[in-house]
Design a protein around this nucleic acid. Structure first.
Length: 426
DNA sequence: TCTGGGGTCCTAGGACCC
DNA sequence: TCTGGGGTCCTAGGACCC
């Protein structure tokens, strides 16, 4: 059977978090703006103006804070309720433009556009529509493989003459080669810092070098992932569209603390709270977990670098917060050591399967499980309606002064009625 | 003083089996 | 004295992604 040549479009929102902030706060337009990670720790999104004054991606706030005075840099805390809501709106809109969509991340979608030879034209319309309806700038890369679509998207973003749309398959071999030669191998999707360094040792510096390398040999030398990347650069699709409705295989919740934490009691509060958060995600997926992992660690930058993790197996898979919290605390007590200044803790649920398909154990009487299901539903419904934390477990603690910092946060413009923007008229 | 959070996939190596 | 080889499953750790 003859293989149909596929075509993938990668649509990506430019500087997504910053762009979301700008939609509701036009004063940020045209200025150097960054959005910070949780705890106001480091830079996770930058406006073009912020890039121009030299703010690096991932830079800790304290290293760029001098730019606030010197260059008028504006730093916003992250507001994930806002970004999540804006993301859902963008993704819905994008989905209307192609027969298949894979939501790849909060700000990116792959679209399968094989039967649409003129998709570059459609992409321009799409770009205008998203800008008009949602106020967000996007870029589109189109190519016969996902890896090349990602790459083209990146080029469309950094080359202003392209107006945010590049169809790799129509530019001709000469331009393709020139483009790949100008691109460091590190910028190829799937090549991280570690690989890039090893590539450099054997003379592979650019995307072009990588494409021209011996795929078989590279596969043996590194991994099948590398081999696939090389084939994808040559235009042979190896990475399929994934259906985004599949349940996650692991669910975690972790946070850095707003202050130093040393006592077991504080860690217990934090771990309880993270376990509850993970359980909510688990129930939203309609899944159950059979394993609970807990990790604690000190700052990676401190002299006392210490981390520990442990997991406990559950007798039967569950989504019951009470049971999961109990086991998370058991795991915590196993791994806790005194004498360290902890900076972060996390809970990870593993061995996940769907609620329907789970094994009912003889140790888990059906009526008990039904009772807990009803209770969890009531808890989620109440917390969903009145806000997280309306109902909580005593072991979560009440003060929670270890909680993270978030000092420059914008309102939940689109997801909380009391914070909706007001329009004033004269 | 101050450095995120949440995922996925692959591989190597050990345990175990026949 | 002589002491296999191959398959499978599981886990920990590494690398990558946004």
């Amino acid at each position: 059977m003859e293989k149909i040549i596929e075509k993938y479009a990668l649509v990506d929102c430019n500087n997504f978090y910053v762009s979301c902030e700008r939609v509701f706060n036009p004063k940020l337009v045209g200025k150097p703006v960054v959005v910070l990670s949780n705890n106001d720790g480091c830079v996770v999104s930058r406006s073009n103006e912020a890039k121009e004054i030299g703010v690096a991606m991932g830079a800790p706030l304290f290293k760029v804070s001098h730019l606030i005075k010197e260059k008028g840099l504006i730093a916003q805390s992250s507001n994930y309720a806002l970004y999540g809501d804006m993301s859902a709106r963008v993704m819905k809109l994008l989905g209307e433009y192609a027969p298949r969509q894979e939501v790849y991340s909060i700000d990116e979608s792959f679209l399968l556009v094989g039967g649409m030879p003129e998709f570059a034209t459609t992409a321009k319309v799409l770009k205008e529509t998203v800008q008009k309806c949602l106020g967000l700038p996007i870029c589109v890369g189109i190519a016969p493989t996902k890896t090349l679509a990602k790459l083209s998207n990146g080029v469309s973003k950094s080359t202003s003459i392209l107006n945010g749309v590049l169809d790799y398959s129509v530019i001709g071999e000469l331009k393709q080669n020139r483009l790949l030669k100008a691109l460091p191998a590190k910028n190829v999707w799937g090549v991280g810092g570690k690989l890039a360094e090893k590539f450099s040792n054997i003379g592979i510096e650019t995307a072009y070098d990588l494409r021209e390398s011996n795929a078989e040999q590279m596969g043996k030398l590194f991994s099948v992932v590398v081999k696939r990347t090389i084939l994808e650069l040559r235009g042979t699709a190896c990475i399929d569209m994934e259906s985004s409705d599949e349940a996650r295989k692991s669910i975690g919740s972790s946070r850095s603390f707003g202050r130093a934490v040393t006592s077991l009691e504080d860690l217990e509060e934090a771990v309880t709270s993270y376990a509850l958060k993970a359980c909510e995600k688990l129930r939203r997926d309609n899944s159950v977990a059979a394993e609970v992992q807990v990790m604690v660690r000190t700052s990676a930058y401190s002299d006392d670098s210490f981390s520990n993790a442990g997991s406990v197996a559950l007798q039967c898979p569950t989504d019951d917060s009470m049971i999961i919290v109990k086991h998370a605390l058991l795991a915590l007590r196993q791994i806790y050591q005194t004498g360290h200044t902890y900076q972060k803790a996390g809970v990870m649920l593993g061995k996940i399967c769907s609620r329907e398909g789970r094994q009912i154990s003889i140790f888990d009487p059906v009526n008990a499980s039904e009772k807990s299901t009803k209770m969890m539903q009531a808890m989620d419904a109440t917390n969903g309606k009145w806000g997280r934390g309306t109902i909580f477990l005593a072991s979560e603690g009440i003060g929670q002064d270890w909680k993270m910092k978030s000092e420059h946060k914008s309102p939940a413009y689109t997801s909380n009625w009391s914070e909706i923007p007001r329009v004033k008229s004269l």
